[in-house]
Simulated assay, not measured.
Amino acid sequence: MKAQVIRSHGTIDQITYEENWPTPEPEDGHVVIRVKACSLNYHDLFTLKGMPGIKVPMPIIMGIDMAGIVAAVGPNCGAWKEGDRVMVDPLLRERYSLLGETLDGGLAEFCKVPADQLISLPENVGFEQAAALPVAYGTAYRMMVTRGGMRLDGSAAGEKVFILGASGGVGTCCVQLAKLSGAEVIVAASSQEKLESLKALGADHGINYRDEDFMKALHGIAGKPRIWGEGGVDTIVNFTGGDTWVPSIKSLRKGGSLLTCGATAGFDPKTDMRYIWTFELNIIGSNGWLREDLHSLLELVQQGQLNPPVDMRFALADAPKAFQALEDRQAFGKLIIVP
């Protein structure tokens, strides 16, 4: 089979296109799927470059998120059969690791997957939509709905939600979920083009953080928070950390919530704790997703309430170009590899 393989950590030029890589065989409790779509995540870049504390066996095929068709079935795989359309939950919970990180992933024509990681894919959900969901959308859903308590029934009318990093996979899901809640949605992105795309997705206000101080811009939209309760944003989604952390805290209304699932710009920002107790703020962390979060996302896609935007598609042979676009933050939403 054809596959993109790495044999050591390093830069994008470490990714090697193999045209005669061994096709995996089904075994006990495992199926082989014909990969129809694989979406990239920043975690794939972390796997490529190496992460402290995570041992990646080499050589390995990256690609965490995938969807496809069952091509072969091993013993003890339950009711799964050849031809079934499936989405893969890539989180191997018993070892708390990921497909495409400690086991071969979806940057190949075929992938061997534990049968208990499969989720049946409805006919009205496309392979690209499904491949976009687990890591980015599962993380966003758990952060905002499961952990953050956001209700997707329009009941948040009158509230304001601000989303940093809104143009990526996690961010575009957060925008759509916040809009379903009924809130007024404010987003930050690095270009006017991305802001226009976010407004088309449902955002009400856009802040170009390269051109203006987002905290001052937020105060202009929502008012400066006051101890007696006026002003400020109800909910802020911040998975960047770094220099954005303190301005986010200073932009929340009294009793507001800051939701976080990562720290792409730095994990040890300075924090003035006086704001947290004085304004009775809620700091809510979220880590990954559970299987039920993915089922909930599939239902939203089926109902037409959620649609992951796919900005770029690449052939398997061009996967390094996709990694470069990901690293350069060129894409809006998700990048998809089509083997």
Rank of each mutant, 00 (worst) to 15 (best):
M1Q: 14
Q4Y: 01
I6F: 07
R7F: 10
H9G: 00
G10D: 12
I12C: 04
D13L: 00
I15M: 13
I15Q: 04
T16I: 01
T16R: 02
Y17L: 05
N20H: 11
P22A: 04
P26F: 02
K36P: 00
K36Y: 02
C38W: 10
N41V: 07
N41K: 12
F46L: 15
L48Q: 03
L48V: 01
L48Y: 05
G50M: 03
G53F: 09
P59Q: 06
I60F: 06
G63E: 10
A71C: 11
N76Y: 03
A79N: 14
V86D: 10
L91E: 01
Y96Q: 12
Y96N: 15
L98G: 04
A108Q: 07
E109A: 07
E109L: 05
E109P: 06
F110T: 09
K112H: 06
A115E: 03
Q117N: 15
Q117V: 02
I119V: 15
S120Y: 00
E123L: 12
A130W: 13
A131R: 04
A136D: 07
G138K: 04
Y141L: 05
R142N: 03
R142K: 12
R147M: 10
R151T: 11
L152P: 07
L152Y: 08
G154W: 08
A156E: 13
F162C: 10
G165E: 06
G168Q: 05
V170N: 03
G171W: 02
C174V: 11
V175S: 14
L180K: 12
A183S: 15
I186E: 02
V187N: 08
V187T: 12
S190K: 03
S190M: 04
S191Q: 09
S191C: 12
Q192H: 14
E193R: 07
E193T: 07
S197E: 15
K199P: 10
G202R: 11
H205W: 13
I207K: 01
Y209K: 06
Y209A: 06
D211H: 15
E212C: 04
F214S: 04
M215N: 13
A217D: 00
I221M: 03
A222K: 08
K224V: 15
I227Q: 12
E230S: 09
G232P: 05
V233G: 06
D234N: 15
F239H: 14
P247Q: 08
I249T: 06
I249A: 03
S251M: 09
R253S: 11
G255K: 05
G262M: 03
A263E: 05
A265R: 12
G266H: 00
F267T: 00
P269D: 02
R274F: 14
Y275E: 11
T278G: 11
L281M: 14
I283V: 13
I284K: 12
H295T: 14
H295A: 05
L297W: 09
L297R: 06
L298R: 05
Q303V: 04
G304A: 14
N307F: 08
N307D: 13
V310G: 05
R313Q: 14
F314S: 10
F314K: 11
A315W: 00
L316C: 08
A317H: 03
A317T: 00
F323E: 07
L326F: 07
L326D: 10
G333H: 10
K334V: 05
L335G: 01
L335I: 15
I337W: 11
I337A: 07
